[in-house]
Amino acid sequence: MKEYETVFILHPKVDDAGIEKQIASFKQTVSDGQGEMVGVHKWGRRKLAYQIRKASDGFYVLARFRSNPDVLVALDRKFKIDETVLRHLTVMSPGDAFPPDLKGRERRGYRGDGPGGPRGRGRGLGPRGRRSEGRDRGGPPEGSRSGPAEDDRKVPAEDDRKAPAEGDRRPSAQAATPEKTPPDAAGPTGQPSEAGPGPKTEE
């Protein structure tokens, strides 16, 4: 008697009664083969990663049972005949706690990682990032972080308010000043940058 885990996907058209019927039928097949159920878990309606028989979502059911290998053949046959079962997979049970924490494993909130995520350097931040987050949840770092972050937000906001106000005054005083002011503003910043690379290239 080995422990197995089966996942099967039901067609989205199957109603709640139909789902219960399928589960009952599954249990019956297992018990017919002198197997014993460990548990059944309704994973729920999920979007499929690709269309199966023109269905783009399906109802996932997860089941664990202990039985002889004969039952697997019977199950496979049953699932293949049944047209409401889009997919089924029976594997050796991983042996973890049965109703697994599937929600914690869902992809939710991970779409940002999508492009570049699995590739090269971006991935390196994964475990480190998680660890730092874990530490932050501890408490004190959160307070210290949120403090300066709020200050940073306020300061630029005030600058932004002042800057447009000055800009409004200048054009109102003289029409030609807007043309003059940009070169003046660019001057101080432009000079050091020109001076910087200059000596380097000479050396």
């Binding site: 996942v7 997860l62 697994p100 599937l102 914690g104 494993r105 869902e106 992809r107 991970y110 990682d113 999508g114 492009p115 995520g117 699995p118 590739r119 991935r123 994964g126």
Partner: peptide, 12 residues
């Protein structure tokens, strides 16, 4: 069944 981990193990 660990969708989250597997999505990080495959390319786009």
């Amino acid at each position: 069944k660990d969708e989250r981990r597997l999505y990080r193990a495959i390319t786009d």
